[in-house]
Simulated assay, not measured.
Amino acid sequence: MENRRDERRELKYPVIGKAGIYKFQKQYISGKSALIHVENFSLKGLRLSSSLDFPVMTGLILSIEFQLFGIENRILGSIVWQRKNKNEFTYGFEILSANMGYIQSIASLTKPVHKITKVAQ
Rank of each mutant, 00 (worst) to 15 (best):
P112I: 09
K84V: 04
A107V: 01
L60P: 00
S33I: 05
M1P: 08
I71A: 15
F54Q: 04
S30M: 13
S51L: 11
R47H: 02
I75Q: 02
L43T: 15
S51V: 12
R5W: 02
S30Y: 09
F41V: 05
I71G: 04
R8D: 05
Y102R: 11
K18N: 10
K12H: 13
Q27H: 01
F93C: 04
N3Q: 10
S50K: 08
K84S: 06
I116Q: 09
Q67H: 12
L76R: 13
G59D: 00
Y22K: 04
I75M: 04
I71R: 15
E65M: 11
D53H: 08
D53A: 09
F69V: 08
N40R: 07
L109S: 05
S49A: 10
E39W: 08
G20F: 05
K118N: 05
N73W: 01
P55R: 03
L96P: 00
S42N: 03
G31P: 04
L76T: 01
G70E: 15
L76P: 12
S108W: 00
L76A: 04
P112Y: 09
K115Y: 11
W81K: 01
V80Y: 02
N87H: 10
A34Q: 15
G70N: 15
N85D: 12
Q67K: 14
G45M: 00
I95Y: 05
I21G: 10
Y22W: 01
A120C: 08
R4W: 06
E2D: 14
N99A: 06
I64G: 07
M1S: 13
I16Y: 11
I103R: 07
Q27K: 07
G31R: 13
G20S: 15
Q82T: 15
Q104K: 13
I36G: 07
I95V: 12
K115H: 12
K111G: 03
L11T: 04
N87M: 06
Q25P: 02
I95K: 06
F41E: 02
I79Q: 07
K115N: 11
R8F: 08
K18F: 11
G77M: 07
I29S: 04
R83N: 09
M57T: 15
N87Y: 06
I16Q: 12
G45S: 11
S97P: 05
G59C: 14
M100Y: 10
G70I: 02
Y91R: 06
A120G: 13
I16R: 11
S50A: 14
E39T: 05
S42Y: 08
F41M: 10
G17M: 08
P112M: 11
R8G: 07
S30K: 14
